[in-house]
Design a protein around this nucleic acid. Structure first.
Lengths: 125, 125, 125, 125
DNA sequence: GTGGTCTAGACCACC
DNA sequence: GTGGTCTAGACCACA
């Protein structure tokens, strides 16, 4: 698993988004126990405080919950996860299309370009 | 022209991207003179220094050039503009697809979702 | 360390070149942490913003990198440093020779004059 | 004749230095009449005011003089020219050596590098 | 009037 | 405490 960090965004947000994706995509399953903050931070090569902050963000949106004595766990409510997945994918699409139109591409161009990209880069992997 | 500023990203970067889009999309044409830094800053309701920083970023990538005491101008080299447009659109697509796949969607899903979104939100505007 | 500033060139460029030389010459070694911007600016008797602008220039050419909240560090990539050293020394020589020829001296004259200068001014220091 | 202008230095200084070189190198000879400011400026593609300022600088150091009704002329005092040539060449050498030593090269390195450069770039032109 | 530079001082997120 | 950003305001050279 890769933990690529770039400097343009706060680290805790990048980590937060990364873990969020791992949950949404099903890599972490409902009810799974997360590694301890110390271990998790070590794995990602970041400061434990930063990992703590990232996990707090995830807890705020009910994607994980804390069991004081046992650690942090992925929510067992699959609705929460599914809803977030839908909401995020719509958001990604909306942002993407807005940016593409800003540089002067219309719907047709966008569809064409993305199909082309997928043809070239993904199908034959 | 709208100058929406949000607080998640440095203002100068948002302005820089905005102007970049205006050039790439053809709103500003090769050889056009930009408003003076002071006027431009006033229009965007930001400090002249911040505007200057944004324009410096655009000058670094040769999208504009400075004629001292006369103002700043859009490059006349259309190749620079076209190349940037291609490069940026590829980048947008790459980032978009990576994010979508990170949350567990495959190529088919992506194409399907984006087509659906365009059907619903754009064609009947 | 001397921080002589003259008024013919922007301060930030003079500072930039000075620090660049300190890195290239080996005074600052790969991986070294630079003084904090505030301290560095105080040492050079300039405003922190000006120092930051100078350091930004060095970061642009990958000679230093920023570890947010920890400080700025000399690149660990010795190739970057060595290449820059070669490139700059060539540039210095090229500019020097061009100027000398502009005032009517040929290669022989140049070599002769520079040897003479070194004899007179440097060997017996 | 080339009038290359870069933006890092005031134009009038670049022009001034260029004409100075043309005089010192003997391209313009003692007593020669310079083109009119209008023509001269047109040749160099600059504003007449800028050319005026450049010529004023040359007049300050007695390299040219003005005959109200006839125009501007190169000084007939060859001593002035010769002295300036010596003085400038020393200055160029001093600056060059200082910069080279700043980046960590010693006298030997300097001599070696400059000989090498001349071998490679000039002898076989 | 134009861009460029510099200072002073403030606030912020991050660790 | 660290770097980053932003504002306000000033001054300068240039054309």
């Amino acid at each position: 698993m890769l933990w690529e960090i770039n400097s343009n965004q706060p680290i805790y947000l990048q980590i937060m988004e990364r873990i969020q994706s791992l949950i949404i995509s099903g890599y972490y399953k409902p009810g799974d126990r997360l590694p301890s903050i110390r271990d998790f931070a070590a794995t990602a090569s970041i400061n434990p405080n930063t990992m703590q902050k990232a996990l707090n963000e995830l807890e705020k949106i009910d994607l994980i919950y804390t069991n004081k004595t046992n650690g942090k766990f992925i929510t067992e409510d699959t609705n929460v996860i599914q809803n977030l997945k839908n909401q995020i994918s719509i958001q990604y699409i909306r942002d993407f299309i807005e940016k593409m139109m800003d540089i002067g591409l219309n719907e047709k161009d966008i569809i064409k370009n993305i199909n082309q990209y997928i043809q070239n880069n993904l199908n034959n992997e």
